[in-house]
């Protein structure tokens, strides 16, 4: 079984510590790297994708240092960056064929494999169109198709659902669970709903460090008995937001229904409710749970 070991890696940009002493061991399955913007997810993933050298620490695949493995490591790697571009004048076929060759497939393998991945991401009928005519969602799908060309044993996808509409996002999640199989999939996101069903484990990242690693169920334990719901007047809301981690706010007939994550009961009439992953996110990152932050992709 494949094993990826991240050994105490750090990355410093000039005076900025983007990743600090990150260690983890991953085996087959889907892992979600969850953290707010600026947590260091992209930097970590770039180091895993062998396009950025760590300032310190090592990354090992089955015990071999990837910086020594070189192209033998990248041979089993599939990587979809957070932000990427496509050649505007290329058709999807040309684009994928180019990357298939870069990934070491021979001519014959290239033809069949390009066909397969196009099918997989449902771009068959658009395969001969120039990429400049592609929509954001289609570009993402082509990006994932590119990552899958070499049938990677290690798949790294950085915020793959950013910029997708909700429907596309669901489709993408399904695609991901479909292809998960016997590989290591590392998926970063700051959107909780992305990971709810597919991730075997969640790695919580904040300010460059791994703060917790657990299954989604275990994650919920963090906020067990700490999620409250109550109804308040409109004018009490801002006061409440200052003092507590306030999640969902909903208008009700009797006032405003708020969801609060707090160790103690925030108000007398607050009642405990079943926690969700969004509450966990709120608990750790103390931020409004954004449904989608449009990242300036493509």
């Amino acid at each position: 079984m494949l094993k990826l070991t991240i050994e105490n890696i750090s990355k410093t940009f000039k005076d900025k510590q983007a990743v600090t002493g990150f260690s983890a061991e991953l085996s087959e399955g889907v892992y979600a790297l969850l953290g707010p913007n600026g947590a260091g997810k992209t930097t970590l993933m770039r180091m895993l994708a062998d396009i950025l050298n760590p300032s310190s620490g090592r990354i090992l695949l089955d015990g071999n240092d990837i910086s020594i493995m070189g192209n033998r490591y990248r041979d089993i790697l599939g990587y979809l960056p957070q932000e990427f571009g496509l050649y505007r004048n290329f058709t999807a076929i040309r684009f994928l064929s180019y990357f298939a060759r870069l990934k070491g497939l021979n001519k014959q393998e290239t033809t069949t494999r390009v066909d397969e991945v196009l099918e997989l991401v449902n771009l068959q009928k658009d395969r001969k169109r120039k990429l400049k005519t592609y929509s954001g969602g289609m570009k993402r799908r082509l990006g994932i198709a590119q990552a899958l060309l070499n049938d990677p044993k290690l798949l790294i996808v950085d915020e793959p659902t950013a910029g997708l509409d909700p429907q596309e996002r669901v489709r993408f999640r399904n695609l991901l669970s479909e292809i998960a199989g016997d590989r290591i999939v590392l998926l970063s996101t700051h959107i909780v709903s992305d990971i709810e069903y597919i991730a075997k484990e969640v790695l919580l990242m904040r300010q460059g460090t791994l703060i917790q690693r657990s299954t989604s169920e275990q994650l919920l334990d963090n906020v067990k008995d700490k999620v409250w719901k109550c109804t308040v007047e409109q004018n009490a809301l801002s006061q409440l937001q200052k003092r507590y981690k306030v999640g969902n706010i909903q208008r009700a007939e009797t006032g405003i229904e708020v969801r609060i994550v707090s160790d103690q009961q925030p108000l007398a009439d607050a009642v405990n409710v079943t926690p969700t992953l969004e509450d966990v996110y709120l608990y750790f990152f103390n931020e409004e749970v954004t449904d989608d932050v449009q990242t300036g992709m493509l």
Partner: peptide, 14 residues
Amino acid sequence: QKVASLIVSTKFGK
């Protein structure tokens, strides 16, 4: 064109 990261992470990309 922001394709460098795609290329460099492939087997022969370096």
